[in-house]
């Protein structure tokens, strides 16, 4: 909700006009902001004041937005649901593929390939699908973040940490789907080939 300062003061009567919410201190070049903040906390007796470095304040705000604010919680659930839907869709794709090629897997068994080798094929396929799914997802997300950053001037960007964590998550989700899909291999009976 975006309101004028007058409406804000009406809604929150405890707040006074002109009282700052944040005071930005600039440290001398070469000084460590974290050490300065720690020293200030020791000096200032008013414990209602929170003295933090810029980075600490940013991290705390990010955590607040992600875990306390409704939008953050909704987005968090969105991520969980997205991962679950991804696992289910990938499982369906893999499971249908295994069912379509059951006679080929049974042939592998008849030829003397180990069960581990056959499991490896399904996992390999799951990982390939996971990687191929990540590439367009990463491209679209990067484009959206860039567009939103340009439109809102907010510091939105696809960080390398974010990309790596999503990639690892995709691989883990793909591996889980693969693990579920391997249960279908039990139906690959080489005796049925004749």
């Amino acid at each position: 909700m975006i309101v004028s300062d007058q409406t804000f003061l009406t809604l929150f009567p405890a707040r006074r006009s002109g009282a700052p919410d944040h005071i930005l201190l600039q440290v001398r070049p070469g000084a460590d902001p974290v050490a300065v903040a720690a020293r200030l906390r020791g000096i200032v007796s008013d414990k209602t004041l929170r003295i933090r470095s810029y980075a600490e304040a940013g991290a705390a705000d990010l955590s607040y937005q992600q875990t306390k604010r409704p939008t953050g919680i909704i987005f968090g659930f969105g991520v969980i649901i997205g991962v679950l839907v991804g696992i289910v869709i990938l499982y369906q794709v893999l499971s249908t593929d295994v069912a379509d090629h059951l006679s080929e897997y049974a042939t592998f068994k008849a030829m003397g390939y180990s069960h581990r080798f056959i499991l490896g094929i399904v996992f390999e396929e799951a990982l390939i699908l996971g990687i191929l799914g990540f590439i367009p997802g990463f491209t679209i997300a990067t484009g959206l973040l860039t567009g939103m950053a340009m439109a809102t001037t907010l510091p939105l960007a696809m960080t390398s940490g974010m990309a790596v964590s999503v990639f690892v998550g995709s691989i883990v989700a793909a591996a889980l789907s693969g693990a579920f899909a391997t249960r279908r291999l039990a139906a690959a009976d080489p005796a049925d080939l004749f």
């Binding site: 006679s103 008849a110 030829m111 003397g112 180990s114 069960h115 080489p190 080939l193």
Partner: peptide, 14 residues
């Protein structure tokens, strides 16, 4: 059984 099958050859009708 897996090791034994490696010493066999199977020709399926299909």
């Amino acid at each position: 059984a897996t090791r034994l099958r490696r010493r066999l050859g199977f020709i399926f009708q299909a």
